[in-house]
Write a protein that binds this DNA or RNA. Structure first.
Lengths: 217, 217
DNA sequence: GAATGTGAAGGTTTTCACAGCA
DNA sequence: TGCTGTGAAAACCTTCACATTC
């Protein structure tokens, strides 16, 4: 429960993922002009239990008022701060194939404060072309451009075969966060965070569920 | 541990997700002409523990040989059967915006046996146009076309505002599995499976990790 | 000797249940 | 009365360790 080195309580991965859910729900509630929200109602909206919501939030302090609930706007801001999304992140997209170019136009990223500032590809026909106001740069220019533009995160949407090679360069350029769409396990140093987005896996999960009449929980 | 109704051991969501990982690793191993693989080696490739691999696999039977390991091709086929991916699934794409059209061209789906057979949109300019050999159909035609083409899964890539409305029609058409890209919690009957793909959430996780020097493990 | 299969142990996450406060 | 915050209990998941088999 408590980390022996830092003395801090350990936050589980699932708690972090749920914070994202709370954030989204609270953004909506704010638009619907809710002032406060109970753990029960918040749980209902995200298909969780009230106790879960309270436990999650209590990790970071006492935000609520007994008898009343949580103040929507304030809680939303607090969660933004915890998640580190109370600011703009500079992101680079590597690869402008199907997925890459779709993500460049994906408005949710922009909306959540992830600003795509650079786009790279190695295809001469794509280099120099315009994607949503951004010019595609040659991947050879990547190392110094990442530094010059203060890029902090990278979305990797390149074929699996070249992914490791490119990620090595990305790491070399000091990037510490990578969202990887290539279906491959990237090797990176311990201080670099990688999240793998594997869309086939989700379909496979559905396939399993239907095939086995799977009932979670 | 054991389900009281069915007498079956309960399979956890994480086990299912790892089966997908094993499947991918085994496909690769097969190409590399491995005949057998030990839990230790398989674990190493997917950054898991050997015990974990053995526990997962033992849920479904005894596939291995003591002293030797698991037969690569056979284990791969077995997992395919368990996941229900030992056949082709008929899939429909709903929405041909950025994400939708990217996914129509996404080769991993095809490769894993998820065949996109129909594409829908409500935009008159898109209806009738050609995407990778498929003609975009009017979403009004959806109910009967889903039935006629024996569609079993649907990928939902439409704006959040219309997602619930469309999903209601999809459910009505008897679809039991939905991969949802809209950032919203869909309401569906208990026997319909929904997986949410939320790419901003992954970036938020990375944001949290960098901001807090988070160390999972 | 090498590696599986599996009860038991250990650890983590979720839920319960209730004291405490508005 | 209504709802939070939180120890304690329960459920769940992972790892250990070893008997077993090839």
């Amino acid at each position: 429960m408590v980390n022996r080195d830092t003395g801090k309580k350990k936050i589980s991965e699932s708690t972090i993922r749920r914070l994202s859910l709370y954030y989204r729900a609270l953004s909506l509630l704010e638009k619907e002009n809710y002032e406060t929200i109970s753990s029960r109602e918040l749980a209902k909206r995200e298909k969780l239990t009230p106790a879960q919501v309270r436990k999650d939030l209590s990790f970071f302090g006492s935000f609520g008022t007994r008898g009343l609930g949580y103040p929507v706007s304030e809680l939303k801001d607090r969660i933004a701060k915890i998640l580190g999304i109370n600011r703009i992140w500079n992101v680079a997209m590597i690869g402008v194939g199907n997925i890459g170019s779709a993500l460049v136009s994906y408005k949710e990223f922009q909306k959540q404060g992830f600003a795509i500032k650079l786009i790279f590809d190695n295809d001469q026909r794509k280099i120099g072309s315009n994607h949503k106001g951004l010019i595609v740069s040659d991947i050879k220019e990547m190392p110094h451009l990442l530094l010059e533009h203060n890029i902090e995160m990278v979305v990797l949407a390149v074929p699996a075969i070249v992914a490791q090679y490119i990620v090595d360069e990305v790491v070399q350029a000091g990037i510490k966060a990578i969202l990887n769409f290539a279906p491959i396990n990237l090797k990176v140093p311990d201080d670099v965070f990688v999240r793998n987005e594997n869309m086939s896996m989700e379909l496979e999960y559905l396939s399993f569920a239907i095939s086995n009449n799977y009932t979670p929980n």
